[in-house]
């Protein structure tokens, strides 16, 4: 038992020594767009759409598709609405001033994002078809004319892997 503990300590020390180097290193520029963002990310994300329950989308973080995965906003409740022509939209509360809108549900304004401009990134959502500027430029979403999709409805969304 004692031998095991000593070996463990030695191992932990060496792991720590290697990890300690990390603090001094430089990293990729935050916010730097990956090449995948320059055009075909939306097409890629649509390769293997997966079923997801609408109610499971509420509150998810909406992230930018770049290494830093910046927080752009959060999925509202109800999360998905159907437009007059049947198109599905994800309702996203934009981060707003200092990001407080996204964190606390305060101050940010909601926008209706076409569903295929968003993709599942694990428990988050990645914005794959709109830039941050395009998201910010969307008009503030009003409920008029759009029907909330019931929480138990299963829709299909594209998926992507992590960007970091």
């Amino acid at each position: 038992m004692q031998r095991r503990a000593l070996v463990a300590l030695a191992g932990a020390g060496l792991i720590g020594a290697v990890a300690a180097g990390g603090a001094l290193a430089t990293s990729t520029t935050p916010g730097q767009a990956l090449p995948s963002m320059t055009g075909d990310l939306k097409r890629r994300a649509a390769a293997f759409p997966q079923p997801v329950r609408v109610g499971d989308l509420a509150g998810r973080a909406v992230l930018g598709p770049m290494e830093a995965q910046p927080l752009y906003g959060r999925v509202d409740a109800p999360p998905v609405v159907r437009g007059a022509d049947g198109t599905l939209f994800l309702v996203v509360t934009r981060a707003g001033w200092l990001g407080l809108g996204a964190w606390m549900g305060l101050g940010g304004t909601p926008a209706a994002v076409p569903l295929d401009d968003a993709a599942l990134l694990g428990e988050h959502i990645a914005l794959v078809g709109l830039t941050r500027a395009e998201l910010d430029a969307l008009p503030s979403f009003r409920d008029a004319g759009a029907a909330p999709v019931p929480a138990d409805t299963v829709i299909r969304m594209g998926i992507v892997g992590p960007f970091h």
């Binding site: 020594a17 300690a20 180097g21 990390g22 290193a25 990293s27």
Partner: peptide, 16 residues
């Protein structure tokens, strides 16, 4: 693959 590993092999680690 990942920045974490690149940072692991950095100046600090090498000096160890």
């Amino acid at each position: 693959r990942r920045g974490m590993f690149r940072r692991g092999i950095s100046l600090g680690a090498l000096t160890m």
